[in-house]
Amino acid sequence: MRKIKSIALLALLMSSSLFISCSNDSDNENTAEASTGDYWPTAVNNQWVLDQNGTESTMKIISSEKVNDDTYFKFNQFSLAQDGGEGSATAAIKKVKGDYYIKIADVIYNANGITGKTTGYEFIFFKDYLEVNKTWTGSYTQETSFDFPGVPVIKLNVNYTGTILEKGATATVNSVSYKDVIKFKFLMETKMEGQTASSVTVDYWVAKDVGIIKMTSGSTVSVLVSYSLK
């Protein structure tokens, strides 16, 4: 019984962490339009150092891969960790005109000898050509399963909406002034079977020819410390 309770708790934590991080796109209503600039430069060895509430981490592009007519750029880390177990996801980015996609691979977990998997997904993170107050939407269903008898597959349904808040702005982060900044918010609403629906909003600031310079969600604040582009 104790092990079953641990599995249920781990599933909730995993799903919650994935929900805060990303979502999967299923919205084909908006056709990609020409980009207004490069708001996330993609080249192997590009890197960004971010400080989140006093803890620094480095996100670096370590490789690229051609899939059909698209090129994905893979990051060195996109980690999730929570009490009772750890999971890590491989993340990559691709750009189609002014649409910025994030792709997350399946996540494999191991805790107390119990293994599990959460299915991966791909979504449109940002549309740089939209005007202020314009939105994009998407939804997905994510599944988490465990190799423990009697534990059902846990399904998570997510709907999201991105909204452009500012364009062509100037933002100062860590005493550095950035021009041509777009600010947008990303609202995610999640519903797990048998659980009460919840939502979270993340605000992002992205600077032309730089990338993400700031993001906030509640009391959590991440700011750009330094970056290096090839």
Rank of each mutant, 00 (worst) to 15 (best):
I62K: 06
G168V: 11
Q47L: 11
G87C: 04
I104S: 01
A91I: 01
D25V: 06
D203T: 13
L229S: 09
Q195N: 09
V221M: 13
T161C: 00
E193G: 12
T144R: 01
I212N: 06
K95C: 11
K74H: 09
Y160T: 01
E189I: 09
V44N: 06
K179M: 14
N24C: 07
A169R: 10
S228K: 15
L156T: 11
T220L: 15
S199D: 13
V173E: 14
S23M: 05
D209Y: 03
L156S: 10
W205P: 01
E86P: 00
V221L: 15
S6A: 05
K134A: 13
K167G: 05
I61M: 02
V225K: 15
K60D: 01
N157S: 09
V176Q: 15
K155P: 12
N133S: 11
F126I: 10
K167A: 07
Y140A: 03
N28S: 06
T172L: 09
F78K: 11
M192G: 09
G85I: 08
G54E: 00
T170A: 10
K191G: 04
Y101V: 09
E29G: 07
D69W: 06
A32K: 06
L9H: 01
V158S: 01
Y72K: 08
E143N: 08
T118N: 05
Q77A: 13
D180A: 14
T190L: 15
Y129S: 15
V107S: 04
R2T: 07
V223Q: 12
V223H: 04
K94M: 05
K94V: 03
